[in-house]
Amino acid sequence: MRKIILSVFVLGTIFSCSDGDLQIETIDFDSVSLQYCSNPVRNAKNLMFKINESEALILELQNGALNNGVVGDTIITESTVPNQSQITYRVFSDAVDDDYFCDDIPVVDPTVIQEVVAEDGLVIIETMLAESDSTLFAHSISLSGISFVTGNGERITNLAISEFGEVTTDVPN
């Protein structure tokens, strides 16, 4: 009986060992501020990101997604992932800051340990006149149905990134 219990324990230990792959259990960026290197502009491609210590969530918004809007109206724009906009999740070897994304010459350290590109989802942009300044449009960006699949086929579904953030652009003259 003792040999059977020992055998079960040994086999259980062998099969429960990790193969060394990094496992992503959750992606949580709701409490992290939206950042960008240069102010977002209408009718252009825009790069925005959120940094959570050694993780980053990067949104490359398709050209024209931040449209001109209409003074007095709320405009909803949708951009599909990955066909129109791209969302990338990166894990770094150490804490990262905006220099990683904004420097003309990319920094060498920290290094990217894992990168996962979203395979499905929707970026929703609600555009309206900014309440605080009638010369600006406010663009509220949210994510819906974002699906990441790692290189080993693991689907990441425990996402807490629905509200990506808000940016403003000038109202055209």
Rank of each mutant, 00 (worst) to 15 (best):
M1F: 07
R2C: 03
S7A: 13
L11D: 03
G12N: 09
G12R: 02
T13F: 12
I14E: 03
F15H: 12
F15P: 00
S16A: 14
D19P: 00
Q23H: 11
E25K: 15
D28P: 01
S31V: 02
L34F: 09
L34S: 06
Y36V: 02
C37W: 10
P40W: 07
V41Q: 10
N43A: 06
A44E: 10
S54V: 01
A56Y: 05
L61E: 05
L61I: 12
N63H: 09
G64C: 09
A65T: 15
N67D: 15
N68A: 12
G72Q: 05
T77G: 00
Q84V: 11
Q84M: 12
Q86S: 13
Q86W: 02
Q86F: 05
T88K: 14
V96C: 11
Y100F: 15
V107I: 14
V107S: 04
Q114N: 08
E115G: 03
V123W: 03
I125G: 01
E126C: 01
M128V: 03
D133S: 02
S134R: 03
L136Q: 11
A138N: 07
I141V: 14
S142G: 10
L143D: 04
S144A: 07
S147R: 12
F148D: 07
F148C: 09
F148T: 04
T150D: 05
G151H: 08
N152Q: 12
R155K: 15
I156Q: 08
T157A: 13
N158S: 07
N158P: 00
A160E: 08
G165V: 09
T168Y: 13
T169M: 05
V171P: 12
V171R: 08
